[in-house]
Amino acid sequence: MRCPFCAHEDTQVKDSRPTEDNTSIRRRRQCSSCGARFTTFERVQLREVTIVKSGDKGEERREAFDRSKLERSVALACRKRDVSQERIDQLVSGIQRQVETAGEAEVPSARIGEMVMEGLKQIDSVAYIRFASVYRDFSEARDFEEFASSVQEAAKD
C-alpha cells in the first residue's frame, strides 16, 4: 500500500485486528522509506453496486457506491451530537450490507437516503432533522418547523 505521507509504495503491516463490530480489519502500517505510521481498514465487498442519482432536469447519473461518502454525510449530520463513531460505523455498515445483499446492480440514491433517515431516526432526532433538511432540500424555516413537529408527534406515539 502506498504511504500517504511520502507516496512510497513499500509499507509493512505492523499490527492487524478486527474492529469492535467485526465488520472490518484494522491494520497499522509503517512506511519503509520515511518511517511514518498510519492505519488502514479492510472491509468485505460483496458486489459492485452502482448508485443512480436523479438530476434536476430528469437526467440520471451513475456512480459507484462509495462507503466513505455515505459515512461522511452521516457523520456530518451527527456532528456535535452525542453519537459515537462506533454507532455511525454500525449504521453505515448496516446500510452497506443491505445495499450489497439486495441483489441489484443499480440502486437509486433515494433508497439509500431513506435508509439513512430511518437509521438516524432511531439514533438521534437532531441528526435525523439535519440529514432530512439536506436530503429533502428544505428551502425555508417553515420546512424545518413542519418536519420537526412531525418528528415530535411521531415520538409521542
Rank of each mutant, 00 (worst) to 15 (best):
E71S: 05
S16H: 08
F38V: 01
D124F: 08
D56T: 11
I51F: 10
S93D: 15
K69Q: 12
E71R: 11
A77T: 07
R97N: 12
D137N: 14
R29H: 15
V83C: 10
R61T: 13
P4W: 04
A75F: 01
I129K: 00
R28K: 14
G58M: 10
D21S: 03
E118G: 07
R62C: 01
V107A: 08
D21G: 03
E48M: 07
T101H: 07
R47I: 04
A7G: 00
D124Y: 07
K80S: 01
S54Y: 09
G55M: 09
G58L: 09
G113T: 06
D15L: 11
S24H: 09
K14Y: 15
G94D: 06
S93A: 15
C3M: 02
R111H: 11
R81N: 01
D89R: 11
R61F: 10
S149M: 09
I123C: 01
R26K: 14
I123L: 12
A7E: 07
D143K: 01
A77P: 05
P18M: 10
K156Q: 10
V44Q: 10
A110S: 15
K14P: 05
A132W: 09
S150N: 02
E100H: 05
Y128K: 05
F144W: 15
C6Q: 02
S109F: 06
A75E: 01
R28G: 05
E86N: 07
G113M: 08
D137E: 13
D124E: 09
I129F: 02
R72W: 03
S33T: 02
V83D: 11
I112C: 00
F65W: 11
A102N: 10
T50Q: 14
C31A: 04
P4I: 01
R29Q: 15
F144Q: 01
E146P: 00
I123F: 05
L76K: 15
A132Y: 09
E140T: 10
V74R: 04
A36L: 00
F138R: 01
R37P: 15
M115Q: 12
C31T: 05
V116E: 09
S32I: 03
S125T: 12
